[in-house]
Design a protein around this nucleic acid. Structure first.
Ligand SMILES: [Zn+2]
Ligand SMILES: [Zn+2]
Ligand SMILES: [Zn+2]
Ligand SMILES: [Zn+2]
Lengths: 141, 141
DNA sequence: TCCTTATTGAGATTGAGTCTCAAAGAAGTT
DNA sequence: AACTTCTTTGAGACTCAATCTCAATAAGGA
């Protein structure tokens, strides 16, 4: 059993939640890919494998994973939200092609630092941030 | 008549669109405040003034204003989108309190430059970006 | 095995935003 | 002004992601 799965089980247990086959299926599906996928894609992928699960349960399980930082939610402002696992993955932001939907990831320490500086200036205690660059990728220009 | 309104009329005319009392009302309401308001707030504010307009028309007019850069859309990832006018306003990004909803505006040239650099690195032609910092403001900490 | 209580699934519901289409009205023409 | 054309409007239906309901199921401890 993976380290992440062990940690999930522990968290569920500590919160009085149960480790069900559906939650396991959602977990497996989400960590199996580094893509940015919407809930319905994850739902369909699980069913494709012959495992029975409902949309509601997929959404609910993603919520549990979100709350415990196993998963990150990506709201692109159009269409359903996308999700990506955060196992062994450092923080990053996204650059998105508005034509074909391609999503790349970037990280600029200098930008991260400047964000902290802005928050400090405004007296905010920073919790999270969204930084998305939209444009046309090489292929779509 | 304001310079902005004159420009709007010209654009409408050039596109074969018509300058109606409803569009004028939405225009007036939007430029009358520097707040970040949702469509429904704008709709209610207009009706409050005794002017009759429908929600559909408010949304449609905002779309026209959006397409012509009179207005900017703010998607905070939760709840309805917010809108702000762009008359005499330079580009800025937002820092939002997740407790009370307060929205402040910031602009860091260095960040803007770094974004261009990222886009260039990835071969993207940048069109727009979203940069939102979420946290707790002074009052809410 | 039994018991308690969380979880599940089917389908209803929500809510922001869009669409439909007949009636109204803007703007150009005579 | 009257006429004509074509856009716009409004009421309500509709969309669609996401959430909720609640009876049936099942996890997990004793
Ligand atoms: Zn592309
Ligand atoms: Zn990512
Ligand atoms: Zn606050
Ligand atoms: Zn603003």
């Amino acid at each position: 059993m993976s380290k992440g799965l062990k940690r999930l089980k522990k968290i569920l247990h500590n919160e009085g939640l149960r480790f069900t086959s559906q939650r396991e299926a959602v977990w497996n599906e989400i960590i199996s890919s580094d893509d940015h996928r919407e809930a319905d894609e994850i739902y369909m992928a699980i069913r494709q494998k012959g495992i029975s699960v409902s949309r509601a349960t997929v959404y609910r399980t993603i919520d549990v994973l979100l709350k415990n930082n196993f998963v990150r939610k990506l709201d692109l402002g159009v269409g359903p939200s996308k999700f990506e696992h955060r196992i062994d993955s450092h923080h990053h932001d996204h650059i998105i092609c508005i034509q074909c939907g391609r999503i790349d990831e970037f990280l600029v320490d200098q930008i991260e630092d400047l964000q902290d500086k802005v928050a400090k200036e405004y007296g905010f205690k920073l919790v999270r941030h969204i930084h998305q660059l939209f444009g046309l990728c090489e292929n779509c220009q």
